[in-house]
Design a protein around this nucleic acid. Structure first.
Lengths: 205, 205
DNA sequence: ACCTGAACACCGTTCAAGT
DNA sequence: ACCTGAACACCGTTCAAGT
């Protein structure tokens, strides 16, 4: 109902943050009216996020290995958040309690268990870690992409300039630290790193 | 100079966000004057964060193993960010270019290399992952602690209520997912998880 | 040349007053 | 009972006008 209008708003001027006032304008009313339906801005964003989550492919045919499926799922989730930075913040600050979010968690749980994690506790930590990492990646990427070329140049210059003997290792590695592949590659690698860390090694080759 | 005043401000009313206007008020001037010294609010926060980072213990006596030392370093870093949420956001959105931040990165690099990571690329990813995770943890924890008891109750109720057969695994695990220890324990475990994942296993017992 | 008051364009949230 | 205009208490940033 109200979420649909919110989607229209973030679609129309997506680069702006989603705000109560802009949403209210879309609905031809005052911002105050929205507080009948949502507790506050963060909850509004959580609702919108849940709606967006409906787009995720949450099927699992059992052909893909848990690792492979987890990888694809997380990649899709991160991409979704990157495409909607206004809404992504909510995922860091509250546990969205919508149905689609629960669907996502449910699939994560099943995949992790299928992947061989035995203890309930460990499954819970893993879900937490994976979701948190996804959100953090998305927020960082989407913000950094706004960072002007200027900003990057400044940074490299700082590195080049300030290194002499206070930061020998940093100096030696130089700018390799920042140019470690595209964002896509970095996301790829971080997901692999985490999954390898979390899942026990497969018992057969 | 200007950063000191900012510290006073966030010390005095730390629960509020640090803003240009509040800082300007502290300095008995208008907010506009600050733009002579800092590019924007994010950069201001980056400056303050760098100043705070000076408090970190960045020594390494070589007695602690790299793993142990990394663990302590990250714990301290996360705690620092948690204590200053207003400033922590900056760490997610820009690479602070201050000296103390570079000091931190330098130590991280040395510890990771000493821990046995051979390729420069892998060291760079590891630094990225560890810093990003720390920031994300801090933002999540500091925000979540503001979450009223009400919020937690709501969440548990949602879980209890909505589970029947759409989310069987979630239902089975129940509230164990959220009550997996205190924040301190969770931080502890996530750090260990990441370090174990990142560092190669020690060659001797 | 340097600094800044006032203005512009926004926010989230509340609440008294209307229908 | 339901809704909302207007108000309150804030933001970041810019720029013309002052010293």
């Amino acid at each position: 109902v109200i979420v649909d209008a919110a989607l229209t708003v973030i679609e129309r001027d997506g680069k702006h943050d989603l705000s109560m006032r802009r949403l209210a304008a879309e609905l031809d009313t005052g911002a105050a009216s929205l507080y009948v339906y949502v507790r506050n801005t963060t909850h509004l964003k959580a609702l919108v996020l849940d709606r967006l989550l409906a787009q995720l492919d949450l099927s699992w045919d059992g052909i893909d290995s848990p690792h492979t499926r987890l990888h694809r799922l997380l990649t899709e989730y991160i991409d979704l958040l990157i495409d909607h930075p206004a809404v992504a913040q909510a995922a860091l600050y509250i546990w969205p309690d919508g149905q689609h979010y629960l669907d996502l968690v449910e699939l994560l749980l099943n995949l992790l268990i299928a992947g061989g994690i035995s203890s309930n506790e460990r499954v819970a930590w893993a879900v937490d870690l994976l979701l948190q990492h996804s959100t953090a990646c998305a927020l960082e990427w989407s913000q950094r992409s706004n960072m002007s070329q200027q900003g990057i140049t400044d940074l490299l210059e700082t590195l080049q300039h300030a290194d002499p003997d206070r930061h020998p290792t940093l100096h030696t590695l130089g700018s390799d630290i920042f140019t470690g592949g595209t964002n896509d590659e970095r996301r790829e690698r971080s997901i692999n790193m985490l999954l390898t860390a979390i899942l026990p090694p497969p018992s057969d080759g």
